[in-house]
Nucleic acid binder design. Structure first.
Lengths: 213, 213
DNA sequence: AGCACAGTACTAGACCGACCAGTACTGCGC
DNA sequence: GCGCAGTACTGGTCGGTCTAGTACTGTGCT
């Protein structure tokens, strides 16, 4: 009794943690319930007491991981609106997104979700809406503010945000997805790419960008 | 026997075709060899005569599909260098890439490869090099030519190509990967997005783009 | 406080039914 | 007689259930 966490809750947390490690490193089909039980130091029966079946447990794993990440985005975007120098601020934000999103662990989770988007469509859609679209939206609202202050010129901030992320991540993300990130790029390499992207982005959307047509 | 294709070769092709359909729609683990045999109108024994095991067959499926796609890229890119009006040409190319790459079948193949990049790293790497990088490279060489003719200004054509594809595909590709493409975007929607991207791309890399810095 | 008791959560492992990769065998049709 | 379809078989895995017994927790009694 007493302190914050009942035994039952502690066990449940152990299970989710063990399951996360297992699913992420061996995939859904590659992971057996027995394996999870052993790694969690728990009996199979206990798992089935907390989660009705394998699919439910998997869903919990994904949801838990997603939630833990989702909050960071707005913070990063907010940083940009307060930056003193636009170019420097954008560069900082780009580098931050780059290294955050290209993190080993997060990439594996991403692959796991894509791999099972067929089997569990709701999970993929959740992740897309709560992660991907939310990231775009907060970046877009940030661009909107900068445009209002004449520091940027983004007629369609959401589109501009998608261009920003697309330019930034297309190569590294695809490489990581397809090659399993066997030979991850160095932080320095990624940041160089981020800087080059910011430069191009500013040409397209910077204050001096002629409206064109 | 006689004509172009021996009985054996025909069987092999049948197997690969059936296997492709099966793998693509049910995934690697979700597909049984028996199922493939039945769909190919062939006995399991015959499959094992042609392919040593399941993994090998899977590899052949991926390789075959990749090869069949790879050739199209240069053609599309070449089209651009001959276009009379840059904006129109770029738009045409962007739309073509968009609808080609966002094709239902190809997306499923892409998901399949990502899902199994861990298990079979060589496959993913092949696809990345022969598909993804090659696409970038031919677009880059095309941009180089256009820059030489002062129709574009791309100091780093490869980077520009990655920006082009990233801006073009970031949203639709991610949506398709995560949601399993349950509610595919209409062709019109995709083409509108393509047009908007070309516009932004030209601001950044068009001939009048100030070198900036 | 200490004790007894009841209810619940947990462990360990056997167990069931289904599925599957890969092999072996049989028998049909060329 | 050869190649293949069809099918049975082997050895193994796995999700999920069941059972028998053990540990934990909270309550009420004294």
């Amino acid at each position: 009794m007493a302190e914050g966490e009942t035994r039952s809750a502690r066990k449940e947390r152990d299970i989710v943690e063990a399951a996360t490690v297992a699913f992420v490193s061996r995939g859904y089909d590659g992971t057996s319930m027995e394996e999870i039980a052993t790694k969690a130091g728990v009996s199979k029966q206990t798992i089935y007491k907390h989660f009705t079946d394998k699919e439910t447990l998997f869903g919990e794993v994904i949801r838990a991981s997603a939630a833990q990440a989702t909050s960071a985005f707005d913070t990063v975007a907010a940083m940009l609106t307060q930056a003193e120098f636009l170019t420097g601020g954008l560069q900082q934000v780009a580098r931050l997104f780059m290294t955050t999103l290209m993190d080993e662990e997060r990439l594996r989770l991403r692959r796991l979700i894509i791999a099972n988007a067929d089997r569990m469509p709701q999970l993929g859609r959740d992740w897309y809406e709560k992660g991907f679209e939310r990231m775009l939206a907060s970046m877009a609202s940030c661009f909107q503010q900068l445009t209002d202050r004449n520091l940027l010129r983004t007629p369609d901030p959401y589109l501009a945000a998608s261009h920003f992320f697309g330019m930034l991540l297309w190569i590294p993300m695809n490489e990581a997805m397809f090659t399993g990130n066997k030979t991850p790029r160095s932080k320095a390499e990624l940041e160089r790419h981020a800087d080059a992207t910011v430069e191009a982005f500013l040409v397209a959307y910077g204050p001096q960008a002629h409206g064109s047509r």
